[in-house]
């Protein structure tokens, strides 16, 4: 005879355990995207009759175009620098000989610094009368416009700085657990320093490096405060553009803000899917 008291089976228990997290995520993400979509399509206007239209997208098209290019450019530049520097940090922090504990610790301590604080620090460092200009003895008039300049150098520097620490930690985590023993085996098989790096360490680090780069890219793409603080007024990256439109006194700009937000979300989603595919292909090659 089976039990008379029905207890939920392992599957039932698992579902009960996952629901408290799943429900708020689905509710918030679903409601936010739906509400933004309705707003951007003119179906939930703050004033007037709901009417399906692409006006918001049409009105924002110009700014949207430059915003997309700018946001992608900033994210790409910052991610590239972060990936290269982060990999170097990880290699130094997990090297078999003369491992640098200091670099590992410094990278770890950089993680909890809020991006906004990083932006403030970069401002103090890179502004035309900033710390770096003083250190190098360059007059403000001949100091390149890093903050608020046309190349968005301070913005890229801030993201590259913070995300390099993130990349370093992720890659070092993988390397420290696996690379040492593989490296020793490779050395016993006669592989030199560069051969070990090329044929053992880099392939081992590649999936983690790619994953971390994708996360950094998507984060940079959707982050507001750094570009708002260290960037220039025009042109605007997508988050800054959306924020300006959303907080504008003109209520008609709200649907445009929603259109920009949805575009950014779509862009982020495409990046995520592309990197997942690339990572899967990388895994399949093994």
């Amino acid at each position: 005879m089976t039990s008379t008291r029905r207890r939920p089976g392992p599957r039932g228990r698992a579902v009960l355990l996952v629901l408290p997290a799943l429900v708020p995520v689905v509710a918030v993400v679903g409601a936010a995207l739906t509400s933004a979509a309705l707003l951007s399509l003119g179906l939930a206007p703050l004033v007037g009759e709901p009417r399906l239209s692409l006006d918001a997208y049409r009105d924002a098209a110009g700014d949207l175009g430059t915003g997309i290019g700018l946001s992608l450019g900033i994210a790409a530049a910052a991610t590239f620098v972060a990936t290269v520097v982060g990999l170097c940090l990880a290699l130094a922090a997990t090297a078999a000989v003369r491992r640098s504990r200091l670099l590992g610790a410094l990278a770890a301590l950089t993680i909890p610094i809020p991006h906004l604080v990083g932006a403030a620090a970069m401002g103090l460092l890179l502004a035309d009368a900033g710390f770096l200009a003083r250190l190098l003895g360059v007059d403000p008039s001949s100091w390149p416009p890093l903050v608020g300049g046309p190349l968005w150098a301070a913005v890229v520097a801030e993201y590259a700085w913070k995300e390099s620490a993130f990349v370093a930690l992720v890659v070092a985590g993988v390397l420290s657990s696996r690379a040492a023993s593989y490296g020793e085996t490779a050395a016993l098989l006669g592989a030199g320093r560069w051969a070990r790096l090329r044929h053992v360490t880099l392939p081992l680090a590649a999936p983690a490096l790619g994953g971390a780069a994708a996360v950094s890219f998507v984060y940079t793409l959707g982050s507001y405060e750094v570009a708002a603080l260290l960037g220039r007024a025009h042109p605007e990256p997508l988050p800054v553009l959306a924020y300006r439109l959303f907080t504008s006194i003109d209520l008609a700009a709200r649907p445009q803000a929603a259109a920009v937000a949805l575009t950014t979300a779509g862009l982020a989603l495409v990046v995520v899917l592309l990197s997942l595919r690339a990572l899967r292909r990388l895994a399949a090659e093994r």
Binding site: S35, L39, A44, G222, S223, A242, Y243, A257, A258, T264
Partner: peptide, 13 residues
């Protein structure tokens, strides 16, 4: 994956 400003902006209304 979703930009926090996009979620916040959509949910605010």
């Amino acid at each position: 994956a979703l930009p926090p400003f996009a979620v916040a902006l959509g949910l605010d209304v």
